[in-house]
Computed example of a mutant assay.
Amino acid sequence: MASRIRDLALLDLAIDSKLRGCDLVVLRVSDVAHWVILLRRAIVPQRKTQRPVQFEIP
């Protein structure tokens, strides 16, 4: 069940951010949360182009 929750979270982030899977699987909790507070937005550099992508976290 835990892997399904992870997969669903990755799918939601992929749809909202329009990032590739290889960019999403390297995300760490610290990229989307600060201590126990979930961030509203995150900035992730794309692996292919190295351009930063900002997206909202649902």
Rank of each mutant, 00 (worst) to 15 (best):
M1S: 10
A2Q: 07
A2S: 06
A2M: 06
S3M: 14
S3F: 14
R4L: 08
I5K: 15
I5V: 10
I5R: 15
I5C: 08
I5Q: 14
R6L: 15
R6A: 08
R6S: 03
R6P: 02
R6Q: 12
D7L: 04
D7P: 07
L8Y: 15
L8K: 13
A9C: 15
L10Q: 00
L10D: 05
L10F: 06
L11C: 11
L11V: 14
D12L: 05
D12Q: 03
L13K: 13
L13E: 13
L13R: 13
A14D: 05
A14W: 05
I15D: 00
I15V: 09
I15S: 02
D16T: 07
S17G: 00
S17C: 09
L19A: 12
L19S: 01
L19I: 00
L19F: 08
L19Q: 04
R20L: 02
R20V: 01
G21R: 00
C22S: 07
C22A: 04
C22Q: 06
C22V: 07
D23H: 07
L24R: 12
V25H: 00
V25M: 06
V25F: 06
V26H: 04
V26A: 05
V26E: 08
L27H: 09
L27K: 08
V29D: 10
V29K: 02
V29R: 10
V29G: 01
S30T: 05
S30P: 06
S30V: 11
S30C: 11
D31K: 10
D31Y: 10
V32S: 04
A33Y: 11
A33I: 04
H34W: 03
H34A: 14
W35L: 02
W35R: 02
W35Y: 07
W35C: 08
V36T: 00
V36R: 07
V36M: 02
V36N: 06
V36F: 04
L38P: 05
L38D: 03
L38Y: 00
L39S: 12
L39A: 14
L39G: 08
L39Q: 15
L39T: 01
R40H: 11
R40G: 11
R40K: 15
R41Q: 04
I43D: 03
I43T: 00
I43A: 03
I43C: 01
I43E: 10
V44F: 05
P45Q: 01
P45T: 00
Q46K: 03
Q46V: 04
R47Q: 13
K48Q: 13
T49C: 07
T49A: 08
T49G: 05
T49W: 09
Q50K: 11
Q50R: 14
R51K: 15
R51G: 07
R51H: 14
R51M: 13
P52E: 13
V53C: 10
Q54W: 05
I57R: 12
I57M: 11
I57W: 11
I57P: 13
I57T: 14
I57S: 12
P58L: 14
P58H: 13
P58M: 13
